[in-house]
Design a protein around this nucleic acid. Structure first.
Lengths: 187, 187
DNA sequence: CCTTATATATACAGGTCTGTATATAGATTT
DNA sequence: AAATCTATATACAGACCTGTATATATAAGG
């Protein structure tokens, strides 16, 4: 990938999170990235296309980071589930954290026919499914149910952290996750 | 309050939720409300002022509805806490439900200096504090901690429901809340 | 040297947005 | 009936937005 395209993606990711997607014009993006609109439109067919690529890159980065962390730090399936929120906390509280793209994107594009909304919704579903697979491997009966509950806590905590950095929400989110996992394991 | 002003508030509440705040122009609002821009700007000093009034009305409606429900359907403090999510489910799954304003508003106005962001953040805090007061009356040790956990689940569930109506998230949110409340009561 | 590819600079068309100015209509009060 | 209040109709200024057109620079490879 061209280094300019990559730079545009990084800058757009940051601006979308800190100023909002619809409030960020392409002129601002190219100015911060140190390039011009012509170059942006050679790498991306439209602003919507740019938004979609930003979302996809963000989700891929998160997913690969998380599964890498889990597979190298936890052997048994039940360990993975237990350590899930440890790593999520690490991700959320890291200085590079810029929020989860799909949470904001779905708020700014509520129309279900919108491609941005559809991708956001799909990413949310993918993440829930990933948690569900971890729960299944840990022999939890209602894996989908637990996955939904954990994803609610996760999305709530990310939102709280987006609303106010250093809210400390992750600390209690972790505790809540542990209680719910333990409860699901003994049932 | 003038009936036209009230009508504008209702229409704006609906459009902001279904199309997004920044994507909804005042021309659209007055067209749907059956009035003109001049009238809107006589009742509201600016679009930002309209957004703030929409947020305040939405939050007041929710809070008064909820505390009314709780005080008339639950006598003991512990009952209130237990029934909290029953009523929240009723609210969220009702046909009139248009989402929680402050959740979307904080996503669309991420800048902490923005008045809209500040009000959203404050409403989120107020709601958490209300839950905390219920937990305190029910003699729960870490009332603030439980309130934060329950609000995470609540906001996560609202988000899930906003993303996809009829997601069924509230059913599992209710179960999770019960587990967390029970756990907090026995500690 | 010359062609090709990539990036830049700049301008602009066409649309949308907020907020205001101006003139008018209808209703209520004095 | 005259004055006042409220809402309407319409137009527009000024700003911003996306996306494109045109012309130029810079660098690499044949």
């Amino acid at each position: 990938m061209s280094s300019l395209k990559s730079k545009i993606l990084v800058v757009a990711t940051d601006l979308f999170q800190t100023r909002g997607i619809n409030s960020t014009g392409v002129d601002t993006i190219v100015a911060v990235a140190g390039t011009t609109k012509m170059t942006l439109y050679k790498h991306f067919t439209s602003k919507e296309n740019l938004i979609l690529e930003v979302l996809e890159k963000g989700h891929q980065d998160f997913q690969s980071w998380l599964s890498e962390k889990l597979s190298s730090n936890a052997k048994k399936p039940s360990d993975k589930l237990q350590k899930l929120f440890e790593f999520i906390e690490e991700w959320v509280t890291s200085p590079n954290f810029r929020g989860m793209g799909f949470i904001k994107a779905s708020a700014e594009f509520p129309n279900e026919e919108s491609a941005v909304h559809q991708l956001s919704s799909d990413q949310s579903r993918q993440f829930r499914q990933y948690i569900s697979s971890l729960a299944s491997e840990a022999n939890i009966q209602d894996a989908d149910g637990l996955a939904l509950q954990l994803s609610l806590i996760f999305e709530g905590a990310v939102q709280a952290e987006q609303m106010k950095r250093g809210s400390g929400a992750m600390k209690y989110a972790k505790k809540a996750a542990k209680i719910l996992i333990d409860s699901a394991l003994t049932n």
